[in-house]
Design a protein around this nucleic acid. Structure first.
Lengths: 215, 215
DNA sequence: GGTATCTTGGAACCCTCGGTTCAAGATGGC
DNA sequence: GCCATCTTGAACCGAGGGTTCCAAGATACC
C-alpha cells in the first residue's frame, strides 16, 4: 500500500551534518540544505521536520558517527591512548577534508543553538562522556605506573573528609586532570577553526599531557 | 554650519557589542540593533556602515574595552596574577550581568564571522596577546621562585632568583605552559556558555595552574 | 489491473532580512 | 532670517528566510 522512500535518510542527514558543521546553523538556509542533499523541500520536512529538528537530528548523528571517542574509550594502554587521541584530534581538525571546520559540538557552544534545551543536553552529555573517557584512561595510566611519583603524601585534608582511608588519594587529582584535558580538547577545536598551526597545537597538547604525566 | 551628531557613537557601539556578544552576529538583525541602540537605520549606516563593518567595530571595541587582560599584563606578582586572572574570568563568565555570554572572541572562532580576514586577524592578535601576557607572568613566577624545581636541575627547591642573561633552560617549557593556559581560557569561555558550573571550572583551572607550578 | 497510501515535485505562502533612498526636520555659522 | 549641512523617520527594494499546500507520481497489497 504505502510508497517507500526514494532516498537514504541517513546519507541525506550526513550531508546536512557536514553543512551545519562547516558553516553553522544560523548562516545556513533551507535552500542550502536542499541543494546539498539533492532532495526536495517536501521530502525534507516530511522526513525530519523543521529546521530545529533537522539540526537536532544532525547533531545527534554527529555525536553518533563523527565523534572519535570510541578509540579512546576502548584503548586500555593508558597515557599513550590519550596522546594518540589528541594527536588524532589535531590532525583531524587541521588537515584533511574537515580542516578548519572545528567540532560541531564545540561550535554549538558558542552559537545561539544552545538556547534549545535539547541541544544543551547533548552538549553536556558529550562533554561528560569525553571527561569520563579521559578519566578512565588516566586511571589506567596510574595503574600501569605511567604517572610520576606524586600520589603519596598529597591530599592535604581539604573539605571532603568523607573519604575513608581505602580510597585512592589521587582520585580528585585525576578527575581534575581529566577536566583540564577535556577543556583542552574544546580549545583545540576552537582554535583550529581560526586556522591555528597544527604543530603549535600538537606541541601544546603534548606539553599538557607531559605535565600530567610527571606530576 | 553642519549639524552635529545627536547621539554618542561610543555608547551606541557599546549596546551593539552587548547584542552581538550575547546573541551572535548571524542571529541578530539590523532591526535588533536599531531597537537596542535607539537610533535609526540611517544614522546607523551613516556612522558605522553595513553590518560587517558594524560587527568589526563592535569586535574592536570589545577587545579594547571589555577584555580584562590589562590587570594580568600589569600584575608582576607572577603566579598569583595568573590565578587571579582565571578566577576573575570564571566569575565574569558564570555570574553577573554577562553570565552565560561567553567571550565575544571565543564565540567568533566558532561562527562564520571568521571568514572575514579582518576578523580573523583580530582573533589571532588577541590570542597572541593573551599568550604573551601569560608567558610574561610565568617568567615572573619563575624569577620569583614560584615554579617547582624542574628547570634542568639547576637548583633544588631554592628561591633562586639568579639565572641572569644566560639562555634559560626552561624557556620552551614556559612557552608551552602559557599556550596550555591560553587554550584553557578559551575553553572556559566556551563551556560557560553552556552553563557549566562555576566551581567546576574554578577547580579545573586551579588544577591546571597547580600542575604548572609544581612541575 | 485497481486502488489506497505514501512520496515527490514545484510553486506559493508570508515574513523578515540587509541595504538604500528620499523628503522633511533640526541645527548652527553667516 | 538665510542657507548649507546633517539628522531623522519612513518607505522602498530585491532577496532570502522557514513553512505549507496540492496535484502528480510511485508503490505494494487486493
Amino acid at each position: 500500500m504505502p510508497d517507500v522512500k526514494h532516498f537514504d535518510p541517513e546519507a541525506a542527514l550526513d550531508a546536512v551534518v557536514r553543512l551545519f558543521w562547516r558553516r553553522g546553523v544560523a548562516t545556513t538556509g533551507i535552500q542550502d540544505v536542499v541543494d546539498a542533499t539533492g532532495l526536495n523541500r517536501s521530502s525534507l520536512y516530511a522526513t525530519f521536520g523543521g529546521k530545529r529538528e533537522l539540526y537536532r537530528a544532525a547533531l545527534e548523528r554527529y555525536v553518533r558517527e563523527r565523534s572519535n571517542l570510541a578509540p579512546l574509550e576502548q584503548d586500555d594502554r593508558g597515557l599513550p591512548a590519550i596522546t594518540d587521541f589528541f594527536h588524532g584530534l589535531v590532525d583531524a581538525r587541521c588537515t584533511g577534508e574537515h580542516a578548519g571546520w572545528g567540532c560541531m559540538i564545540s561550535n554549538a557552544h558558542a552559537g545561539a543553538e544552545n538556547d534549545d534545551p535539547q541541544v544543551r543536553a547533548v552538549l553536556d552529555r558529550q562533554h561528560e562522556r569525553l571527561h569520563n573517557a579521559l578519566l578512565n584512561a588516566l586511571r589506567t595510566a596510574r595503574r600501569h605506573g605511567q604517572l610520576g611519583p606524586d600520589t603519596a603524601g598529597t591530599d592535604t585534608a581539604g573539605s571532603n573528609t568523607a573519604d575513608p582511608g581505602a580510597t585512592d588519594p589521587g582520585t580528585a587529582d585525576l578527575d581534575a586532570a581529566a577536566s583540564v584535558l577535556a577543556l583542552l580538547a574544546h580549545a583545540v577545536n576552537l582554535r583550529s577553526r581560526a586556522g591555528a598551526d597544527a604543530r603549535q597545537l600538537r606541541d601544546t597538547v603534548d606539553a599538557a599531557i607531559a605535565m600530567i604525566a610527571r606530576r
